[in-house]
Design a protein around this nucleic acid. Structure first.
Length: 713
DNA sequence: TTTGCTTATCTTTTT
DNA sequence: GATAAGCAAA
C-alpha cells in the first residue's frame, strides 16, 4: 500500500481509477480544464474524490506546486495529501494545502505591503477582538455609568457583519439587531475607529485576513497574474461554508484559467453565524460560466435504516435540496432512541453503551458522542472519568483562550511590539494595587518614549507597585536585547508570571502550569515568535497530544464533527431547551440551520446510531425542569426509530407494572410498550384517556387494551 | 484609585 | 456558574 519514496515518475504508477471510483466520482476526477461544481451528499465519497483528483492531476504531469487545495481545517488538507501520496507518490506533499485563513495569512505576509501593512502584522483572535472593541468603546465613552451598551460578543458580531456586508452599520442593526437601534450613533462611531486602530497598529482580525487579501487581489493585477500562473488548479472543499469574500477570492485567483473545482453539500451548511452563505454554492455557476455540475448521490457510509432516518430529518427542511441519497450498504438496524430520566441518567446510559460497544469489539476511536454545545457533555465527562474511560474532547473551550495562556502570550507579544496597548493592559493589571487608571498613565509615558521597555525599567512612581513594574521592564528589555530560543524565552517569562498565576488561580494553578509547560513544548517547533503567535491563532492545537488522540473515544460538538465519521455515534441531549439551541429558537432561518446541524450529526454514523433525550434538564437558577423532546426528533416518523429496550432491570423495577383505573390522571408520565414514554393529557369518557407521547405524538388509548405503566419520577 | 462586595444577566457553534 | 456592572469603603 505504501509507496517507496524513490519512485521515478508518477506516470509509471498504475492506478485503476475506474475500479476505485464510481462513474460520477470518476468524471469529477477526470475533468482537466474549466470550472467544476461537485454537489456531494453526506458520505458520498467526497474526500475520496478530492484525493483521487489530486493524484490524477499529478499523474497527468501537473507539478504539485501548481495545485492549491483549500479545506475547512488544516488537518483535513494534511490527511488528504497523505492519502494522495500513498496512491501516486510523495510528491503530493508539495501540494499547497490548508485553510482559507491560513493561506490568506501567508499571502498577506508577502503582499500586505501593497495595501500598507507590514509583513509582521499581528492576528487578533476572537478574545483579542472583544477586548479591543471594548477598550475603544470605553475611550469613546460609549459605555459607562448608566449607559447600556451591547455586550462584548454582540459588539463583535455587529462589527464583523458590518465589515462583511458592505460597511453599513445601520443596515446590520436594522436587519439583525432592531433592539439596539438606540445605540446606532455610538456604533457608527466605533466601527471606523476600530478599523483605523487596526491599521495603525498593524493588527488583523479573522475577517481582515480574507477582506484584505481580497483587496490585494482586486487592486493589484500583478499579484493576480502571479497567482494564476502559480496555481493552475484550485480546489475548495466544504464550499457551502464559505462566505461571499471567499467566493470572490476564488474567482480572482482563478481568473486566468478557471480551473476551479469546488465541492460541498448545501444540506450541510452550518456556519452562517460566521458569515457563510450556502447560496454561494448555488451561485457558483453564475460566477463561472461553463461550469460542469456533478452530483454524488450514492451514500457509502451509512446502513439503509440510518440513511432512511437522516433523509427524513432533512426532508422537512424549508429549502429544497438538490439531491436525494441512496444507500449502497445493505442491512443494519434503525437508529435507537433512549429516553433518559435526566442528564445524569443519560450520561450513565451513554457510558454503559460505550462499554458494551467496546466489549463487542469496537475500538475506542470507532465511537463518538456528539452534542450541541461544549458544556452539554459535563455529566458524561464525570461519568467516564469515574469509570476510567479516557476520551478526547473536541470543540468547546480552547487552550489558546484560557486566561493563563493569553497572559503568557501577551508577554511574548510585548517583546515583538512594545506598544501593544492590549497586552500591556493584560499584564499590568495582574500587578497588585495597579488598576486601569495607572495602566493609562504608564502607557501614555511609554508611547512618548524612544525605547518603551527601557522607559518602563526606570519608571518613576510613589506607588507600591513601582518595583514590580520596573522589574518587568528590565526583564523584557534584557530578553529583547538578547534573544533566546523560544522555549527558553517562554520559560523566563513564565518565571516572572508564576507568582501572579499562583495568586490568582490558587485553586488549580498546578494544572495551569502543566498547560504552560505544554505550550513551551509546542514552541520548540517554531523559528520565531511571530510565526508561533500567528499559527496558534489560526490553527489552535488540541489540548491532548495528537498521537494519543488517534486511538481515543471522541466527545465533540456537532460543529467540530463536520467531515468526520465513526462506526458508532451517540447524540446527547436532544431536548427542547438544549437542541435546537434556545438562542436560535425564534428565527426560522436559524432553526433551519439547526436542522441541518442535526443532519450533519446524524450522518456521521456508519453502523450504530443512538439518539438520547433527557426528560428533565437543569436550567440555570430554576433547577430541574421537564423538557419536551427536540422538535427534530418528533418529526422523525416513529417507524424509522426503535426505542432502546432496557434489559432485565426495567421489567423488575418496582411500580412499573401498576395498572388499574384511576391512576392515569392528567399530567402523569406513562410508558407504552410501543409508543414509549408520554404524558397523560386528559380523561375522555370511561376507561379512555389521551396521551401525548414524546416521540409518537398524541394518541387516544383504551385502558382495557393498552398496556400502560406509570413512570416514577 | 483600587478593591471587595452585591446583584443581574446570560450562557452556541468557530476560522 | 461565570462574568460584568454598580456601589461603598479603604
Amino acid at each position: 500500500m505504501t509507496m517507496s519514496t524513490d519512485l521515478p515518475d508518477p506516470k509509471g504508477v498504475f492506478v485503476d481509477f475506474k475500479r476505485e471510483l464510481n462513474p460520477e466520482q470518476l468524471r469529477a476526477v477526470e475533468i482537466m480544464n474549466g470550472p467544476v461544481l461537485v454537489i456531494a451528499g453526506a458520505g458520498s465519497g467526497k474526500t475520496r474524490t478530492l484525493v483521487y483528483r489530486v493524484a490524477r492531476l499529478i499523474q497527468e504531469g501537473v507539478k504539485p506546486d501548481k495545485i492549491l487545495l483549500l479545506t475547512f481545517t488544516r488537518k483535513a488538507a494534511a490527511t488528504m495529501l497523505a492519502r494522495a501520496s500513498r496512491i501516486v507518490g510523495p510528491q503530493c506533499q508539495q501540494v499547497t494545502g490548508g485553510t482559507f485563513h491560513g493561506f490568506a495569512h501567508r499571502m498577506l505576509r508577502r503582499y500586505g505591503h501593497l495595501i500598507g501593512y507590514p509583513n509582521n502584522f499581528t492576528i487578533l483572535d476572537r478574545t483579542d477582538m472583544l477586548d479591543l472593541l471594548y477598550l475603544l468603546a470605553r475611550q469613546l465613552e460609549l459605555t459607562g455609568p448608566g449607559k447600556q451598551f451591547p455586550r462584548k460578543s454582540t459588539l463583535a458580531s455587529i462589527v464583523s457583519k458590518t465589515e462583511n456586508c458592505g460597511g453599513y452599520v445601520s443596515k446590520v442593526i436594522e436587519q439583525n439587531y432592531p433592539h439596539l437601534l438606540g445605540e446606532l450613533p455610538g456604533l457608527e462611531k466605533l466601527v471606523p475607529v476600530y478599523r483605523k486602530y487596526k491599521k495603525v497598529h498593524a493588527l488583523m482580525d479573522y475577517d481582515d485576513l480574507l477582506l484584505r487579501w481580497r483587496d490585494v487581489l482586486k487592486e493589484h493585477a500583478q499579484v493576480r497574474e502571479s497567482m494564476d500562473s502559480w496555481f493552475q488548479y484550485i480546489m475548495v472543499d466544504e464550499y457551502q461554508d464559505t462566505n461571499a469574500t471567499q467566493a470572490e477570492i476564488v474567482h480572482l485567483m482563478a481568473c486566468g484559467h478557471d480551473n476551479v473545482m469546488v465541492v460541498g453539500d448545501d444540506a450541510q451548511s452550518i456556519y452562517s453565524f460566521r458569515g457563510a452563505n450556502f447560496k454561494n454554492i448555488m451561485n457558483f455557476p453564475d460566477m463561472f460560466s461553463r461550469t460542469q455540475i456533478i452530483k454524488l448521490e450514492r451514500n457509502y457510509r451509512s446502513t439503509q435504516p440510518n440513511l432512511d432516518c437522516t433523509n427524513a430529518i432533512i426532508a422537512n427542511a424549508k429549502e429544497k435540496f438538490t439531491k436525494r441519497l441512496t444507500a449502497q450498504r445493505k442491512g443494519g438496524n434503525p437508529p435507537y432512541l433512549y429516553t433518559a430520566k435526566d442528564e445524569v441518567d443519560q450520561a450513565k446510559f451513554v457510558a454503559d453503551r460505550i462499554q458494551e460497544l467496546l466489549k463487542d469489539g469496537f475500538k475506542p476511536s470507532d465511537i463518538a458522542v456528539l452534542f450541541r454545545a461544549g458544556f452539554h457533555s459535563f455529566h458524561l465527562e464525570t461519568e467516564l472519568g469515574s469509570r476510567g474511560i479516557t476520551f478526547a474532547k473536541r470543540g468547546g473551550l480552547r487552550l489558546i483562550e484560557a486566561a493563563h495562556i493569553k497572559d503568557l502570550l501577551s508577554l511574548l507579544r510585548l517583546l515583538i511590539n512594545p506598544l501593544d496597548r492590549l497586552s500591556w493592559g493584560r499584564i499590568l493589571l495582574l500587578i497588585e494595587r495597579l488598576g486601569i487608571k495607572s495602566v493609562e498613565k504608564i502607557f501614555s509615558q511609554l508611547i512618548k518614549s524612544e525605547d518603551p521597555l527601557e522607559c518602563l525599567s526606570t519608571y518613576k512612581t510613589k506607588a507600591a507597585w513601582g518595583e514590580t513594574v520596573r522589574g518587568l521592564g528590565s526583564l523584557l528589555k534584557r530578553l529583547h536585547d538578547m534573544p533566546a530560543d523560544l522555549p527558553d524565552l517562554l520559560l523566563q517569562l513564565e518565571t516572572w508570571y508564576r507568582p501572579h498565576l499562583e495568586k490568582i488561580h490558587h485553586e488549580d494553578y498546578p494544572k495551569r502550569l502543566r498547560e504552560l509547560a505544554h505550550l513551551r513544548g509546542l514552541s520548540a517547533r517554531y523559528d520565531d515568535a511571530v510565526s508561533m503567535l500567528a499559527d496558534l491563532a489560526l490553527d489552535p492545537p488540541d489540548q491532548e497530544e495528537m498521537e494519543k488522540e488517534k486511538e481515543r473515544l471522541v466527545l465533540s460538538t456537532m460543529h467540530s464533527a463536520k467531515g468526520l465519521e465513526w462506526k458508532a455515534v451517540l447524540i446527547l441531549s436532544l431536548a427542547e431547551g438544549r437542541f435546537p439551541s434556545p438562542a436560535a429558537s425564534f428565527r426560522t432561518k436559524e432553526i433551519e440551520e439547526e436542522r441541518r446541524l442535526f443532519y450533519v450529526a446524524a450522518t456521521r454514523a456508519k453502523d450504530f446510531l443512538c439518539f438520547c433525550y433527557p426528560a428533565f434538564i437543569s436550567v440555570s437558577g430554576t433547577g430541574l425542569l421537564p423538557a419536551r423532546p427536540s422538535r427534530f426528533l418528533e418529526e422523525i416518523p416513529s417507524d424509522l426509530l426503535q426505542l432502546w429496550k432496557k434489559g432485565v432491570d426495567f421489567q423488575g423495577s418496582p411500580g412499573s407494572d401498576q395498572t388499574g383505573p384511576g391512576i392515569f390522571t392528567p399530567g402523569k408520565r406513562v410508558r407504552h410498550p410501543i409508543f414509549g414514554p408520554g404524558r397523560v393529557i386528559r380523561d375522555i369518557g370511561p376507561k379512555k384517556i389521551q396521551v401525548l407521547f414524546d416521540v409518537a405524538g398524541e394518541k387516544t388509548l383504551h385502558l382495557d387494551y393498552a398496556k400502560l405503566s406509570v413512570i416514577e419520577s
